[in-house]
Computed example of a mutant assay.
Amino acid sequence: MQLVVARIGRAHGIKGEVTVEVRTDEPELRLGPGTVLATDPASAGPLTIATGRVHSGRLLLRFEGVHDRTGAEALRNTLLIADVDPEELPEGEDEYYDHQLIDLDVVTEDGEPVGRITEISHLPTQDLFVVERPDGTEVFVPFVEEIVTEIDLEEQRAVIDPPPGLIDDRAEVASSRDADGTGDAAETGDDA
């Protein structure tokens, strides 16, 4: 199985280093020196990591055969793809690889279907499930213990306890605010 583990950013310096947007929870395993990665677009690779280091909180990589800024800039926005054994599991008990979560059905604790996970978005502060609803719209569910209460890989589902407004239709939320008088500025006494 192939997984995107990073995206190459801009060149750093003049010796062929690039900044990297990490898209894996295990950069030391997936992005270490000597690792050979496929690329998207495929014309850029495969690339072999020569060196890696952290500078000002960002991972910098240099690839074999890329020795100057021009070569590094040519790789900008290239996705780095690792081959991962689909049976491989993370070390932590409550940790999951993205490929284990993609396509899980999402249901509320009451069993109400919400949709299907189509993508995991890795943000600096937390991860989000991108959930496609049956009507084709998307909802973003923070992957935090308070909201995602259970991941059941055998049943292929994620159980959530969403706070009000997270998965409700906007029209439903707006109408409930209007019904209690908090949705209309004229009723709150605002004259501006």
Rank of each mutant, 00 (worst) to 15 (best):
V141D: 00
E26H: 15
E73I: 11
A38C: 13
D152Q: 10
E154Y: 08
A174H: 12
T149C: 07
L89P: 02
G34D: 02
L153G: 03
D161C: 04
D161S: 14
I160E: 02
T39E: 12
D103F: 13
E21M: 04
F63T: 06
R69Y: 09
V148I: 10
D94S: 13
D169V: 00
M1N: 05
S43A: 15
L31F: 04
R133H: 09
G13K: 02
R116F: 04
V148F: 04
V54T: 14
P142I: 12
L61H: 05
E93S: 11
D98Q: 08
G189M: 01
I102L: 15
V18T: 05
T51P: 00
R133A: 03
I102A: 06
D25G: 14
D161Q: 09
E112M: 03
L3I: 11
I160A: 01
L80P: 00
E95N: 06
V107C: 00
E138T: 09
R76S: 12
L101R: 05
V36P: 03
E109S: 12
G92P: 08
F129P: 00
G165W: 01
T188I: 08
D178E: 14
H99M: 04
T182A: 06
T125H: 13
H122A: 11
V141P: 02
T137R: 13
P90V: 02
A192E: 13
V20D: 08
P41Q: 04
Y97F: 15
A185K: 14
R69N: 09
V159R: 14
V5K: 07
R30A: 10
R76Y: 10
L29F: 13
A179N: 10
D168K: 01
D191Y: 09
G45E: 03
S43E: 14
V106M: 01
